[in-house]
Amino acid sequence: MHIPDGFLNITTVATTYVVSAGGVGNAVRVANRKLSEKQVPLMGVLAAFIFAAQMLNFPIAGGTSGHVIGAALAAILLGPWAAVLVMSCVLIAQSLIFQDGGLLALGANIFNMGIIASFAGYYGYRLVNSLLGSSRRGKLVGSAFGAWSSVLLASIACAIELALSGASPIGVVLPAMAGVHALIGIGEGLITAAVLSLVMATRADLMQLQRI
């Protein structure tokens, strides 16, 4: 879902840059106000963790493989604003070091996989929690639903940006992207739930981290 340079037109590039700068700027403000200096090394290591977790591929179908985005996982564990910060750093590093996602498209990529995915993941999780109660089952179902909706909504945002840039008509790119990612999202959801199930079994205290 990392958009390379060349796909987005300049209006979309400028708009997504402004929106993402606002979102990340607010995440920085919230972090500066609420987090102590202790959290900074921790978030750095966790950014490295998200990066490494994305390298663990799992087979999907027909010889292809996929990996998790991790935004929902980060948002559920650390809170949505912290997840925006961590994901933005991961995306900046991926763009600069691996050329995975363009530099001009960075605004769009941070918007999709950083901001949209984190908030969709967090509020999807909270929604199910409030419906099912925050029992173990509620948390697992909530995290799976949150992760699934984070992937789906991020792909829809990505499709809209591509369509607005004139790369492909909306009637084609939106159902294609959303359809494919509704399936990929199931993988993300199941794996996120499995991760939380392990964390709850071994270090349940990490489920009660300070969230921002």
């Binding site: 799992f58 199930s197 392990l198 990490l206």
Partner: peptide, 24 residues
């Protein structure tokens, strides 16, 4: 497969978190 990947990422998370604490 899902359980295995989930356990791997979960373990990686816990180890990373503990490393972050030690580093601080």
């Amino acid at each position: 497969q899902v359980t295995t990947i989930g356990n791997m990422i979960g373990t990686l998370f816990i180890r990373s978190y503990e490393r972050g604490e030690r580093v601080y």
